[in-house]
Nucleic acid binder design. Structure first.
Lengths: 296, 296
DNA sequence: ATAATATACTTAAACGTGTAAATGAATTAA
DNA sequence: TTAATTCATTTACACGTTTAAGTATATTAT
């Protein structure tokens, strides 16, 4: 690989001068370079096909323009992919590179060690488990690595962007209540993650506020991972005569909402005529569902 | 940050000895370290909270355990996310970090420059445009950076993994023909990308081989990006009396297959009784479609 | 008893860059 | 006319690590 010294030799100057020119630092007080030399250096760099060594530069400056995206999943879920896409876009704009780490394929301890060893400039953390977050955040703080979070329930301290799980679900209830629905059911997650609880609380709060006289609040517990186990739970929820079963179902995710559509189809319940279905996240599946899916 | 020299000072040895111990290189011919010293060094490193500086190490060794994933899209599409997920998994296993680059947010020229400047160990390239691939591949070759591809039609030379677009679609025809279908339509992409053409050719080849007496081969051209424009095209394709219209439709993607399901639902055509629908890619939308979607 | 060798280190150079400080020449100021 | 300043460049060190080569000291072989 051709170095700054090769360029210097070819242009007949010292490597410091080359550095000043190639970094645009030429011009200030002690770093002035004549136009002739400047041109010769640029020409030499061009002819030799010089390309800066970022590792050496990082070594010298102590900076490393890399941010880490640490996720409990990187892209197998559509949602994570979209978050990452946005991160890469903005990072690129600011001349930062993005390194990606999976919690699923490593431990938090391992990942934080790597982040420090690689002297990343900052971390963006994404997980549905706040225990990992707390660990990463405190370790990062110790080493003065800035840390932000995406899409975690807002219970955790520090800088981050998140969906408003509570309010979002509450709004969904308000929307349905406004359409005249009284018997609204909610399908929750068996895993008691932060967002599970927040959304569920949002549902309960919404029902209390917008459907005050509704005695029953049906909450079913679906599971995200095992697709087949969900349908029986949903069928159970939708069983009963038309004047007893719910007229609307709010689901903690779009995937579950699709399951509801499937169950309704199999049971001959018409959507949206006899049943309204609302999901959460606005994933592709919402847009491509056979009947249009409303989503938070 | 605490360096190897701080550890050396605390342990009362030279920094070279520390390096040998911390890298497990102690023991060979000229790099032997006594057990006492070894323990003292480890203890010192522990107490000081020493963490290796990977940048300096890269500088010294000339190696950089980072591979780049360059994509025309990183995760906004579910498919890309899944590819990346696999890459990160295997890279982690081999102690490599993964840096992510978007072609959408930069140019191929810019990206290849960064890859070289950052001295990445290798590139995995993912794009539906082989013109970008050819450029990246030749530039990478010049600088001796190994380059592999994922999910590009196999027309491009070099190492890579790809879907067999031709054979996959041909198999779909074979499958339908085996079920007795004669009037099979294909929905293709308006953009003439490599995979578009390969899949289309696979359909034509399949029809010739497995449905030889079928005079007509209907090929419609949908579009992936603009959702609303697809439905009229599909409705047109499905119009006509039951003994004239196709009994099966093969789509170049699962998303389009979902559009077909939507159109069929609106037109009162029963799936799968009156119409079979086949997609491509096995995305989430296939699993969560209201009626089960067969997919390549 | 001396030479050869093994042991347990240390010294020193290297990786490629950035940058403060030094330097000599040319220009301007007093 | 000499001192001060500006200009253009070089020298030299730093960043934190790896690693080849050097060096005492202790052990073994002859």
């Amino acid at each position: 690989m051709v170095t700054i010294k090769d360029v210097a030799r070819k242009a007949g100057v010292s490597h410091a001068t080359v550095s000043y020119v190639l970094n645009g630092k030429a011009g200030q007080a002690k770093t002035r370079v004549s136009d002739v030399a400047s041109e010769r250096i640029k020409a030499a760099a061009d002819q030799l096909g010089y390309q800066r060594n970022e590792i050496a530069r990082s070594m010298a400056t102590g900076r490393n323009d890399v941010i880490a995206f640490v996720s409990c999943d990187t892209g197998a879920w559509e949602y994570t992919g979209k978050i990452m896409s946005g991160i890469v876009e903005e990072a690129t704009r600011q001349s930062f590179a993005v390194k990606v780490y999976h919690l699923a394929h490593s431990t938090p301890e391992n990942i934080i060690r790597q982040l420090i060893e690689q002297r990343v400039a900052g971390v963006i953390f994404h997980s549905d488990r706040s225990i990992d977050l707390d660990f990463i955040r405190s370790e990062a703080a110790k080493k003065h690595i800035p840390c932000a979070t995406v899409n975690l329930s807002s219970t955790s301290a520090g800088i981050g962007v998140t969906t408003d799980d509570f309010q979002g679900t509450k709004e969904a209830v308000k929307y349905l209540a406004g359409l005249g629905h009284r018997r609204i059911a909610y399908i929750s997650n068996r895993l008691r993650l932060e967002f599970t609880v927040s959304r569920e609380n949002g549902f309960v709060a919404g029902m209390k506020e917008y459907v005050p006289r509704s005695g029953v609040m049906q909450i079913a517990y679906g599971i995200s991972t095992d697709y087949d186990e969900n349908l029986p739970v949903i069928r159970e929820l939708l069983s009963g005569s038309e004047d007893k079963r719910p007229t609307a179902v709010i689901c903690y995710s779009d995937y579950i909402a699709c399951n509801v559509l499937q169950a309704a189809y199999q049971m001959g319940i018409k959507v949206p005529e006899e049943l309204s279905v609302i999901g959460f996240a606005d994933l592709d599946v919402a847009k491509y569902a056979t009947v249009p899916l409303t989503t938070v």
